[in-house]
Simulated assay, not measured.
Amino acid sequence: MPQPAPPMPAPVPAATNRPTVPIPANPTARAGDVSELPRARRADRRNGGSRFWQTLVGGAAVLLLLSLTGLAVAALLDERTATPSAGQPTPQPSESSTPAGGTDLDSRDTDQATLTAKEVFPTKDLVLTDGKPAYRVLKTQASTKCQVAATGEIADLLVRLGCNQVVRGTLRSPDGDHLITAGLFNLTDVATAQRVRDRIRPLLDARQGRFRGMAAGDDTEVVEKAAARVAWQVRGHYVAYCLVTRADGERIPSDDAAAREIMYDMVELHLNRAVLDRRAAAGTAGQPDAESAGDSAGQRGTD
C-alpha cells in the first residue's frame, strides 16, 4: 500500500516591517543601569558645581587673608620705622646746614670772609637782653696769631690745628664788679674746632695752658693775671670763649651766679646768637652742638 504523505509544515507567517526589539538577558539589572546613569550624572554635576563654588570662595578667602597679612606686615614695618627700639637713639629732626641765601659755617671753604673786630663788637655798649644794662666794651683786637689769646699747650694746640685768626674784646660788666675778655678763634672746620674744644678742659685741669685776658687800661691789668672762670663753645669752625675775673682780683667761686650769667651772656647770647647768627644770615646754620654748650672751668692766675 502506498505510504501516506508526511504532513506539510505549517506555513511561516510573512515577515512584517516592525523592528525586532532585543530582550536583555537580565531585564532587572539593565533597567537599573538605565535608571541610575542620569542620577549619577546629576550628582556629578551637583558635586562639580559645589566644588567650583568651594574653590572660588576658598580662593577669595586666601586672597583676603594674604591682603590682611600684608597690611599687618606693612603696619609692623611702619611701627618699627616710626618707633626706634630701646637702646637706640631717637632720631632728631635735622636742620639744613646751609639756609637759603645763608653761609655754611662748618668750614672756612664755605665761610671765607675773615672776621673783623667791628663785626664781633659793633658798638661800645652791648645790650644783650632788653631791659638790662649794657656791657661796656673797653678794647678790641683782631689778630692772625692765635697764640696771643692763650698760653702753653692751649696756644700750641690752636696753632697746630690751623687756627689763623682770633678776634677778642675786653669788657666791663654792667655792675662794674667783673672784667671780661671774650672772643672767637677761627679754625679750619668743625672737626678741628671740636678737637680743640675736647682738649681745653684736660689742659686747664693739668695747668698746661690758659686763656689770656687782654688789659685795656684804666686799672684793667687784673684781667691778665687773676684767677678766672672760663667758658667755651663750638659753632661751626669757630671756638667761642669767655674769661671772667673779679675787678678787685679776688678769686671767683665755681658756683658764682654772677660769673655764670656773664659767661652765658657773652658766649651764647652775644658770640653765638648775635655775631654768628648774623654771619650765617638765617640763624640756623651750624648751631652749637649739645656736648659743647655750657663748657666751663676755672683757671689759676699767673704768678
Rank of each mutant, 00 (worst) to 15 (best):
L203G: 01
R207Q: 14
H178D: 10
V190Q: 13
V223K: 02
A142Q: 08
R160C: 08
T192C: 07
C146A: 14
G169N: 01
Q194V: 11
V244F: 00
P202S: 11
V196P: 00
V159T: 15
D205K: 15
D219R: 14
A216L: 05
K139S: 13
V223F: 01
D175C: 07
I154Q: 03
A142S: 14
Y241W: 08
V166M: 04
G176V: 03
E221Y: 09
Y241G: 00
D189I: 06
V196L: 05
V222C: 05
F211M: 12
E153D: 15
C146P: 07
A149M: 10
V230R: 00
F211N: 04
L161E: 14
V159Y: 09
L158Y: 07
G162I: 07
L161C: 07
L187R: 03
A149S: 13
A142Y: 00
L161N: 14
E153M: 12
P174S: 07
D156I: 13
A149W: 01
R235T: 13
Y135W: 11
T144Y: 07
V166L: 06
A193Q: 02
I200K: 01
V166N: 04
R168A: 14
A216H: 03
A182D: 05
V230N: 00
R229P: 02
Q147L: 12
L161H: 13
V137K: 03
D205R: 14
A215S: 13
F211W: 10
G169M: 03
V148E: 15
D219W: 09
W232K: 06
G217V: 05
V239M: 08
V190M: 11
L204S: 00
K145R: 14
T170R: 03
L179F: 09
T188I: 12
A155T: 05
D156T: 15
A206M: 08
V166C: 04
E224Y: 01
R199W: 01
I180Q: 00
A193M: 06
A240G: 13
A155R: 00
V239Q: 06
L171F: 07
A182E: 09
Q165F: 10
S173I: 01
E224N: 07
G236F: 05
R160E: 15
V230C: 04
K139V: 10
R212M: 12
G236T: 10
C242M: 06
V159G: 10
L204F: 06
K225A: 14
I180N: 00
V166K: 03
V137D: 05
G162K: 05
V234G: 03
A231M: 08
D198C: 07
R201Y: 03
Y135G: 01
V234N: 06
L138Q: 10
L158A: 11
V167T: 08
V244T: 08
A228V: 08
N186W: 12
G209R: 00
T188K: 13
R212T: 13
D189R: 06
D219V: 10
R199S: 15
T144L: 10
L204V: 08
G162E: 06
A206E: 14
Q141A: 13
I180K: 00
I154F: 04
R160D: 15
G169H: 02
V190W: 08
G176D: 02
Q147P: 14
